[in-house]
């Protein structure tokens, strides 16, 4: 089971409303597509290319941060998808990063969050309530990302029980 797969690419394409070309796996099992007669290989390269049409104006620092997170996700998400024990550590790392940051790259929503959301979706979906509770920052981020326009056009938003609890017992003020 692969996490950074063809479906994720198609979802990102739908989000940005851009064509994704014919996405397939090359003989080396690398995700590949052809856009504007140019062959693009690898999850990160394709995702950045899809966002590039709309993601202009980002600072260099911001685009490098995106690149690093996407590479991080591309490197570990597939193993996390097939191995729940590995997924735990993988998600905890992201949870830690989101403790002090609103978005993966810091203060701005960008393609990293969109791609990250689609990749992590099945992993978060299978978490138990108590596991969700221990990944509270990931859950808050998920709830925020899936509330953004166009993100959930083709799949249901994830039910996040731990957050429902917070709504039933809101902070007193």
């Amino acid at each position: 089971m692969s996490a950074c797969n063809i479906d994720v690419i198609k979802q990102i394409g739908r989000y940005y409303n851009v064509p994704v070309g014919t996405v397939c796996y090359s003989t080396d099992k690398i995700l590949t597509t052809v856009l504007d007669k140019e062959s693009i290989e690898g999850f990160t390269s394709i995702v950045l290319r899809l966002a590039g049409v709309n993601g202009k104006g980002a600072s260099k620092e911001q685009s490098l941060l995106s690149y690093q997170w996407l590479e991080h996700i591309a490197m570990y998400a597939n193993q996390a998808a097939s191995n729940p024990a590995f997924a735990k550590g993988f998600l905890q790392g992201i949870n830690k990063a989101l403790e002090k940051n609103t978005y993966l790259t810091g203060q701005y929503l960008d393609v990293t969050d969109i791609a990250g959301y689609y990749v992590l979706y099945p992993m978060i979906e299978r978490l138990s309530v108590s596991e969700q509770e221990s990944l509270i920052n990931v859950c808050r981020w998920t709830k925020h990302i899936q509330a953004q326009p166009r993100v959930c056009s083709n799949q249901k938003p994830l039910p996040l029980n731990t957050l429902n609890l917070a709504i039933l017992a809101p902070a007193v003020h």
Partner: peptide, 10 residues
């Protein structure tokens, strides 16, 4: 109070 409110909210 604000901090616990923002634990689960962006």
């Amino acid at each position: 109070v604000l901090d616990s409110h923002l634990l689960t909210r962006t």
